[in-house]
Amino acid sequence: MLAATLCGLVIAALLISKFGNGRSDGDGPSLVVYCSCDAAIAEPVIEKFRQRTGISVEVRFDEEANKSLGLANLLLAEKGAPRCDVYWNNQALGTDRLRREGVLEAYESPNAGRIPAGFRDADFYWTGFSARLRVYLLNTDEVGKFDPATVDVMLTATQLDRVTIAQPVFGTTLSHYAVLAAQTSLEELQQWHRSLQQRGVRQVRGNSITRDLVAEGICDLGFTDTDDAYGAIDKGRPVRMLPVRLADGKTICLPNTAALIAGCPHPDEARQFIDFLLSENVELMLATASARQIPLGPVDESQLSDEVRQLREWSRDAVSLRPAANVHQQVLDWLLSEYTAQ
């Protein structure tokens, strides 16, 4: 009975794994892509690549769950025998950590030239495309004016219990911190961070919660990303956004990255996929999706919405990420000791 049950389950697992995801394996090689981007946005892009090249693609999306460790950790664990060919990450500094760990292989795509130098690795271990901006999200029911001066006043107040920011240990807030450290120094960043804490800033687990707190009127001001901000705007919540600007007026623009995995099983197909991701077509597809990702290279502007054109305008002031990449690990080490009291 038990043996029969187990056999049945194994056969069922095999059958369902064959048909369950609704993907056809085809006869060609199966490219394996790890993708940290929103699955609903990435899937049409990958489908287009499949149609265009006939290469079948197995995608592994990030859960983005609070309790998921993410694909970067998985790539590190698999470093000895990678099964992944391409890593499509949605934040550049996380990818740069993989470069330092020796997980990536340099690849200069023919399409890399269309991306500004500040958004790609100097040695082409990764190349950025379609970006998000760090923004302030303001609740329009609670805040009267929507200009940088108002934000400055709010951030210099003695009490920040109606201001929210994600814990900087993960995600784009960590990138934000790294940029700040690169602009000034780690000590100044630490001072600023402690000042926020002392004044009671609400530190939460992720940008989507920051957005929800502002959208629900629980906080007046939050640090978040453009794609999260549009999640509230599209639902008609009373919010508006302004770009986060550094002391020198620069904005923080965080691109997606495409990177080739060192020793990957399908390097040729992987390069084709990277070329595809860095193309104008893909940047336009991502710009017209709900997240309104900002094209970094030249594209047909007429196909962009006013909103994206505005974002693109802001992104022209973007700070280079290379200095931030250099201090990224120092910032992370400090935050680890700060948050785990070790």
Binding site: N21, R23, E58, R60, E64, K67, S68, A77, R83, S208
Partner: peptide
């Protein structure tokens, strides 16, 4: 449980729970 499948599932298998977390994160 999402922890085990997110780290140890084969690449061709996407359990529904990981997809659910993805959808939740992006507010779908």
């Amino acid at each position: 449980d999402v922890s085990i499948v997110s780290l140890l599932r084969p690449v061709q298998f996407e359990p529904v729970v990981t997809r659910l977390y993805n959808e939740m994160h992006y507010g779908r």
